[in-house]
């Protein structure tokens, strides 16, 4: 671990963090502010939703039962903000934090300083997870502040914390995936395109596989299956197998990143 590099990485990536976090906090506050309107017009919405085929409702996560309480309504959107957009933020960030040294030709400077390859990965990974933690904390705080503002204490705190916890697991996993695949990519390839594509593909696979029993098995290839929690029915998904899936896969990807980078030829 090298603290000089760690602090430098925090400084280098603060604008990215501020932009993404502010954007999602604004989305969340806006969404929470719409929740009272949805609750008021719930009956009309129910009639409207009945017109949709079941499979389509499953694809878009429209569950009338879920819309019976404030958190249920909000949670439908949280999947999109924290898991999908958060996933894109995490994977593109993960893909850039190590590979940008090669892409911007600064690797020659960094790797000729007295530090080991493992120290480079450790310092950058810690800086990355510092921001991922702060990002999820900011998101969940804004959900709590928003719901408290509009509904006082009339929502399930455990449900909110559970959403935040899974957000952290999701973004950690996608970030670790980004760290790993950036070392396999050729120099000059855009991490934004590849990273966004990967998150969207896994999201779409999960969404469509939910719609039909025939292709339901496809959900197993997507992390979205493992983070699928139902806050309305009081099922928060704190099962060990879910936790093991996220933590195990994240740890494995990080270990592989260390192993690969220790032996990687650096071209500038």
């Amino acid at each position: 671990m090298n603290w000089n590099l760690y602090w430098k990485e925090l400084r280098r990536n603060r604008v990215r963090f501020i932009i993404w976090t502010s954007l999602l906090v604004v989305f969340i506050i806006f969404t929470v502010s719409v929740v009272p309107l949805i609750l008021r017009d719930r009956e009309q919405l129910e009639t409207f939703l009945k017109l949709y085929p079941e499979s389509l409702k499953k694809v878009f996560g429209m569950d009338i039962e879920a819309w019976s309480n404030p958190l249920g309504i909000y949670a439908t959107y949280h999947g999109f903000y924290a898991y999908l957009l958060g996933g894109i933020f995490a994977i593109t960030f993960g893909m850039e934090i190590i590979s940008k040294e090669e892409n911007r030709r600064t690797a020659e400077f960094l790797l000729t300083r007295p530090l080991t390859r493992s120290e480079v990965v450790a310092s950058k990974t810690l800086a990355f997870f510092t921001y991922i933690f702060a990002f999820n904390l900011a998101l969940i705080c804004s959900v709590l502040i928003g719901l408290t503002g509009f509904f006082g204490t009339r929502f399930d705190l455990k449900g909110v914390l559970s959403l935040g916890f899974f957000g952290l697991l999701f973004t950690s996993l996608f970030g670790a995936l980004g760290l790993f695949i950036s070392l396999l990519m050729k120099r000059g390839r855009s991490p934004v395109g590849v990273g966004t594509g990967l998150v969207l593909v896994t999201y779409i696979i999960d969404a469509f596989a939910k719609a039909s029993e025939k292709v339901n098995f496809l959900r197993w290839v997507s992390p979205f299956k493992f983070g699928d929690i139902d806050v309305v029915r009081g099922f928060y998904g704190f099962e060990w197998w879910r936790l093991l899936y996220f933590l195990g896969l994240t740890a494995l990807l990080i270990l592989l990143t260390f192993a690969l980078y220790r032996k990687k030829d650096i071209y500038v």
Binding site: N4, L5, K8, T106, E108, T112, R113, P114, V268
Partner: peptide
């Protein structure tokens, strides 16, 4: 590397840093 000075053929540095900041950053290593 603690005792080696390396001068590459082509030089690239980080943006948004002054020369002094870069040299301070390097010295801290």
């Amino acid at each position: 590397k603690k005792h080696t000075g390396y001068l590459p053929s082509e030089v690239e540095y980080y943006d948004s840093m002054t020369v002094k900041e870069l040299l301070e950053y390097s010295a801290r290593f």
